[in-house]
């Protein structure tokens, strides 16, 4: 594991490069794009395990934090989807430069999946794309975050002192929720993705959603070859005050690794 900062001073992103295990590298480099907010904390262990497993299988893997999140520079108050989409692309460039790989596969979880799909469509050169329970419509995601926020306010020993915290207008489950991010999320609709994000796509859903089939059709209409896997674990990203209870879904990790192994040359 090699941790490092990249990009210009004051805008540095934090990344961890997992080089492949001894025995030679495979042709693809894999960039993991995590979710945002409390979901990033809950799924941290899952993405760590996924990176470790992929590196053991011979892939160069990069995990990284978007600007204003995790160990990267900035605060979440300046977070915006356009910038985070650009961060995904920068991370892919960084892995190509560091590891000398040409082919890139992005693995995105939740909002990270939406960002990965957008970055793939903007770049036009991705070889593989894994979308794990992607946020398809930002409006639905905001509503889901509000539901979690209300659950947190009901169950945790907290008394909000300002209206923004009470309503979820200015913060959601531990993280500031700036206006610009809210507006961008409100407009986010992956069905309107303009171009093919990647030729090979794995759609992973751990909870049944009526949007899965139409989204798959949309990707196929753009020219993607889409594999769709469902897993019994659902809602592993839900908020818990005690993160020690967060679950790591092994079947889901193995399913993603297996698809990448089969798809990579």
């Amino acid at each position: 594991m090699i941790p490092f900062f990249f990009d210009p001073p004051d805008e540095e992103l934090f990344g961890i490069h997992h080089p492949p295990a001894a025995g030679g590298a495979r042709g693809w480099g894999v960039v993991l794009c995590g979710p945002w907010g409390y979901e990033a904390l809950v799924l941290h262990r899952v993405l760590f395990q996924l990176a470790t497993r992929l590196a053991a299988s011979g892939f160069h893997v990069l995990r990284f934090d978007y600007f204003g999140t995790g160990d990267s520079a900035g605060s979440v108050e300046v977070g915006e989807l356009r910038r985070w989409t650009r961060d995904v692309s920068r991370a892919a460039d960084e892995l190509q430069a560091r590891a000398g790989v040409r082919k890139i596969c992005l693995v995105g979880a939740r909002l990270g999946a939406a960002l990965a799909a957008r970055a793939g469509a903007a770049r036009g050169d991705l070889d593989g794309l894994v979308l794990w329970d992607p946020v398809l419509r930002g409006k639905d995601h905001i509503e889901a975050l509000h539901t979690e926020h209300r659950r947190m306010l009901r169950t945790a020993h907290v008394v909000p002192e300002d209206a923004g915290a009470k309503s979820g207008q200015t913060e959601l489950v531990g993280f500031a929720f700036p206006d610009r991010l809210r507006q961008e999320l409100d407009r986010l609709d992956l069905f309107e993705i303009p171009r093919l994000p990647a030729r090979e796509v794995l759609l992973v859903t751990s909870a049944s959603s009526r949007s899965d089939a139409p989204f798959r059709e949309r990707l196929e209409a753009l020219g993607a070859r889409v594999a769709h896997r469902t897993f019994p674990e659902s809602g592993v990203w839900r908020w818990q005050e005690d993160l020690g209870r967060a679950r790591v879904p092994p079947q889901l990790i193995e399913g993603i690794v297996h698809w990448i192994e089969e798809s990579a040359p």
Binding site: H157, V158, V159, T170, E171, G174, E241
Partner: peptide, 12 residues
């Protein structure tokens, strides 16, 4: 008014 992990940003 704060909880164990300081979930509200004012408490942070």
């Amino acid at each position: 008014r704060a909880n164990h992990v300081f979930t509200l940003t004012a408490h942070q």
